[in-house]
Amino acid sequence: MTAPTPLVTRTTPETGSRGLIAGVGLLVATLTVASIAVGYAAIDLPAALGDWLAGRATLPALVLMELRLPRALLGGLVGFSLGLTGAVMQGYLRNPLADPGILGISSAAALGAVVVFYGGLAGSLSLALPLGGIAGAALAALGINGLAARGTGTLGLILAGIGLSSLAGALTALALNLAPNPYAALEIVFWLMGSLADRSMDHVRLCLPLMALGWILMLSTARALDALALGEDTAASLGFDLVSVRIRIVTGAALAVGSGVAVSGAIGFVGLVVPHLVRPLVGARPGASLWPSGLLGAALVLGADLVVRLLPTRPELKLGVVTALVGAPFLIALLFRREQGR
């Protein structure tokens, strides 16, 4: 053909997204520090840190290490999981409306925790609740992976997820309906709204390894997600084993989101909105959006959790309520702008 031969120029934005990752990473670090500094009791942070380093179990040291630090760490971990999983789901399903819960994993995790609540085990063991949530997510992932291994297409996967979500939602409603007393039902409802309050380092130790494994599995699919932008046949022709990709994504999402829901309840909209914010900044390449989406998710959850604590409402607003209140109008505005842009 007759085009002039162009100069060999850079075609990759990988260096550009490195700057973005550094920028959002800095934001996350700042918000983590802010999250540690903000709380209901005013404490002298340097003194508290000094006490703890010196091994003195003073009250400020305990507040820092047992309350503030786990809350900030969980905010970052849960947010990263939600942002990353949202970006992976949207890339994998080639659907901008996909969110971390689309495969039904969040609902199943919530159901697992509710079953524990309902069974009255939550009182006997502090980690019973998150363990129940993780069990729910694991069962859901096994079911979805069973479908994925049989070669069900992405549409089949979405339908299975919708079915699973509905079933888990129905069973959760059943548990509420049969709750022994109104107080138990209220407790379940509040838990489902999502919160990072009163979590301990035990929660961090429980979910961190599971989440990290989930992140690794999902991040390993970055290139396959790029190739999937051109469809499943093209991705397969470019050498990607799509069954393996599916299993890594479903398992990774179950580990990250399942353990996230298990420790913090349901925090909506973060995973749905974050990839939309990141996409224009990374040239819309799905694989390049993973790290920035995870980091921005962490920043968003940390920020929302700060807002929750700074607002004068008592008892404090649930985190999931705040992210939904901010996220929903934002999403509507985004879709509106997108339609106008056509």
């Binding site: 075609t11 051109l230 040239g283």
Partner: peptide, 23 residues
């Protein structure tokens, strides 16, 4: 392989779409 139904799922730059062939 150039498949028939192929579309481009995301608003990626042309240069990046072509670069997918190097994966």
């Amino acid at each position: 392989v150039l498949v028939q139904s192929a579309g481009i799922g995301w608003p990626m730059r042309v240069a990046e779409v072509v670069a997918l062939g190097r994966l």
